[in-house]
Structures are given as structure tokens and as C-alpha cells.
Design a protein around this nucleic acid. Structure first.
Lengths: 158, 158
DNA sequence: TATTGTTATACTCTATAACTATA
DNA sequence: TATAGTTATAGAGTATAACAATA
């Protein structure tokens, strides 16, 4: 029995396979993402996860560490680790929160901004590569579905 | 600016956000998956990833370690590690391949089969939980899209 | 009392390189 | 020469528990 025969006849996948399928697709796309990023000469310690942390900070502009944790779906301890690494490389800054002295605010450094631009370029080319496989309609459908599922995910955490 | 205002106005997400969104959704769903599994009294060492390995073997019936590696999108070395752990717990068996003495074939043990049943139950309940958020049409659309993307992923590896 | 972030520690996932046995 | 899997080793991601500072 060949590989394709065995695992995936288009119309025969039951809905119950969606979850593992989503995990696999996500895994493969993350590998693509890291591979594609490796083609742009980014600093070697910038792994996929660290880049996702940077992008989250970039999107927010500035935010508290605990907010960063919740957006990334990871624990405070794990954020501390990412922040330690990224700060040591001067990609981000820790700033005191003026209205709560327990808290720490994170921002991108000026130095990292050109790197973010490169990452954006790389992301776009990866996206082109695989979004070409989908029709416009499928793309917007996918977007809609993912957003619905995302809201579930974030609500469940509270 | 509140959390929901900031990150996700439904119609404003550009297609370029699909990739990070997919990663996040997948991450949150994996956390749900592991949480839900923790409610069924499964052996504690059965992490999400190890369960995915078991399910892959279960689906195949029996397969070579290198085929397992390619289906999971991981390297031979990593498979060895999973197999070591799962075999030590008597969840799977290593068998010699009769037609190639370099190769090793993996099968589920009889003992693990009731555990697989439990895992299936847990999977279904997770699936119900979040598939309820989607219409029938969205579910089949999602399935179709993921399969398309999956084929890209697996083809790229060769 | 509760929350923010850190220190100390540990487990899991993943990989590369060098190697053995076999093809 | 090339492939299948292992040994040795290491880096990265994640977490829990105990704690200090602050709310």
C-alpha cells in the first residue's frame, strides 16, 4: 500500500481527522517557515518561535510581559526566557511600567527594526508560495474559520 | 486600547496574517487537546506528541521507522527517541523487517489498544467542542483546505 | 491576599554528526 | 556507495514551585 493510497483519499477523510490534520499542516508549514527564513540572512539565534515573539511585540507596539504570555499562549516563566534571550541580543527593551511597579513593559529596539522588515519579506514569500495553492475564496474562508477558532482559544484561557 | 480591539477586527485581518494565525490556532488547539486528554485518566507520560505518534502507528497498522519519520515530519533520530520511550512502556513493538534487515517495523502492542480507544473518545469530545463553532459547510471547507496544504507539505519533503 | 516577574530546576521535542550493519 | 537506525551530544521550548516586590 503506497503512501498516498494509505493516508489521504480526498473525500474519505472523516471530520474527526481534522484535528490531527490541522496539527500536521501546521507542523509542516512551520518547517517551511523556518526553512524559508533561513534563506534570508537573519541572525542564527532567531528561531521561528523567537521570531513569533518579536512579531507579537511588533504588532502590539508595546505591552506587558503577562499580556505577551497570554497572547502567545505560554506561561510567564517562558516569556521571561524569551525576553532574556531577545534582550541580550538587543532586539527588545525591558521598561518599567509607570503605573504598576511590579510590571515590565516590552518594546522593540530601534536596532531590530530592519530585521523585522526582512522577516516580513520572508513571511510574504512563504505565504505566496502556499497561498497560491488556494483560490481567493478558499483563502478568505480559511481566514474566517481560523478567526472563529482563535476566539474560542483565547476565550477558553480565562 | 483593549485586547480585542487591538488584535482582531474580523474583516480587517489581511491575508498575510493567515500564517501566524494558523500557528496560533494550532497552538491553542494543541493545548486544548492536551488539557482534554488530561481529564481522561491516561498514563501521565503520554504527552500530546507521543499520542500523535501512537495514532500515526495505529492508522498505518504497521510501518517502518523511516516511513514514520516522514509522516510525522521529523527526523530518524527523533523517531528513535519516541520509539524508545513508547516501547519501554510497552505501548508498541519493534519488529525486524523480513525483507530488509536494516529496517525496523513498528506496531502497536495489544496492551495499548484500550488506551487508543480512550484517546479516540477524548479526541472526539475535543472535536465536538470546537467544531460546534463551525457550520457543516465550514467544516468541510476547512477539511478541503487543510488537505490541499497537507499535500504541499508532504511533497516538499521529497 | 493576589499578582508580576524571576530563580532554580527539569522534562520534552528536536536536531546534527559520527557510526554500525546491511543493501 | 547509499540507506536504516543508533549513540553521543546539544539547543530550544515549555513548565511547576518557591520567592521577592508590589498592589
Amino acid at each position: 500500500m503506497s503512501n498516498s493510497e494509505m493516508s489521504l483519499k480526498l473525500e474519505e477523510i472523516p471530520v474527526s481527522e481534522i484535528l490531527p490534520l490541522l496539527f500536521k499542516v501546521s507542523h509542516f508549514l512551520q518547517q517551511e517557515f523556518e526553512y524559508e527564513l533561513s534563506l534570508y540572512d537573519l541572525p542564527k539565534q532567531l528561531t521561528g518561535s523567537r521570531i513569533r515573539v518579536l512579531l507579537e511585540i511588533s504588532e502590539a507596539g508595546s505591552l506587558r510581559m503577562n499580556e505577551l504570555a497570554s497572547r502567545l499562549g505560554i506561561k510567564a516563566r517562558t516569556v521571561t526566557q524569551f525576553v532574556d534571550v531577545l534582550e541580550a541580543e538587543n532586539y527588545i527593551k525591558r521598561l518599567p511600567d509607570p503605573i504598576d511597579r511590579r510590571a515590565t513593559i516590552i518594546e522593540l529596539s530601534e536596532e531590530v527594526k530592519p530585521i523585522i522588515k526582512k522577516i516580513d519579506k520572508a513571511s510574504k514569500s512563504i505565504l505566496d508560495k502556499f497561498m497560491n495553492l488556494l483560490t481567493e475564496k478558499e483563502q478568505s474562508e480559511l481566514k474566517k474559520i481560523l478567526l472563529k477558532l482563535y476566539f474560542l482559544g483565547s476565550q477558553d484561557k480565562k
